[in-house]
Simulated scan of single mutants.
Amino acid sequence: MAFLMALVLVILLASDKGSTSLFVDFYKESCSVVEEIVKHNVDVALLKDPRMAASLLHLHFHDCFVKGCDSSILLDTHRHVVSEKQAGPNLNTVRGFDVIEKIKVIIEEACQQTVSCIDILALASHYAVELVVIQLENQGA
């Protein structure tokens, strides 16, 4: 548990590269349903596969590990440029793309061209960890 919390802290620190414009409820006015959509879909994904929580956190970590958190890991290979998604270290080891893609589609229907992919990925990993912590607390762990 301590390792998981430390990993989350590292990711959060890596994602804030001196930005002073980050704040809670950023999408409150422009897309008030974003957090509800992400949390619901992460919850559904975890019910189907409890290991998806670790997978979403791992996906976010791998995105942030290469030149910062920019959601570039979600990009597909284009022509002769191999994407991070298909790069050797990530190929067949990083998963959860389908969960993020589903969330992106639903959010895009609700709030066109408003929510960034990195915010979706960050929120998904946040809620995945939060839901696991709640589950562990309910089990008395």
Rank of each mutant, 00 (worst) to 15 (best):
G96N: 14
S71D: 09
V34N: 04
H40F: 10
K39Y: 05
E101P: 00
L74N: 05
H58D: 07
D49C: 07
N138H: 15
V33R: 05
K85Q: 13
L22Q: 06
V24R: 12
S19N: 13
N41F: 05
K39C: 08
E35Q: 06
D70T: 14
A128G: 06
I134V: 12
F97D: 09
F97L: 12
A53I: 01
P89Q: 05
C64A: 09
L4Y: 01
S72Y: 07
F23W: 07
A128V: 06
D70W: 00
G68M: 03
I11G: 02
L91P: 00
Y27H: 05
F26K: 10
L136H: 13
Y127R: 00
L91T: 08
M5W: 05
V105S: 09
V105A: 12
N41P: 02
F61H: 05
I37A: 02
L57G: 04
Q112L: 13
I134G: 05
A14V: 08
G140M: 12
K28Y: 06
S83K: 11
T93C: 07
I37N: 01
A124P: 11
V94N: 02
N92L: 14
A53G: 10
S72M: 11
L9A: 03
R51N: 12
K102V: 10
I134S: 12
L47E: 13
S32L: 01
M1K: 06
L7R: 04
H62I: 07
V24G: 00
C111L: 14
E109I: 06
L12H: 04
S32M: 02
Y27A: 03
K102Q: 11
E36S: 09
N90E: 00
L22W: 06
S83V: 13
H126W: 08
L4H: 05
K17E: 08
L13T: 07
G88Y: 13
R79T: 11
H80N: 10
H80T: 06
D63I: 02
Y127A: 09
A128W: 07
E29D: 14
D25M: 11
E35C: 01
E36Q: 11
L123N: 05
Q139W: 12
V82D: 07
K104P: 00
D25N: 15
K102R: 14
Q86T: 01
L22E: 08
E137R: 13
K104V: 07
S15P: 03
Q112P: 14
V10R: 02
C117E: 15
L57T: 04
A87S: 15
L74K: 08
C64H: 02
C111F: 14
L91V: 10
D43C: 04
S32D: 11
V133G: 00
A14P: 01
Q135E: 15
L22V: 08
L75D: 15
L4R: 06
C117D: 15
K48S: 08
M52S: 03
F65N: 12
V42L: 02
R95H: 15
E101C: 06
L121C: 14
V34A: 08
T77K: 03
M5V: 09
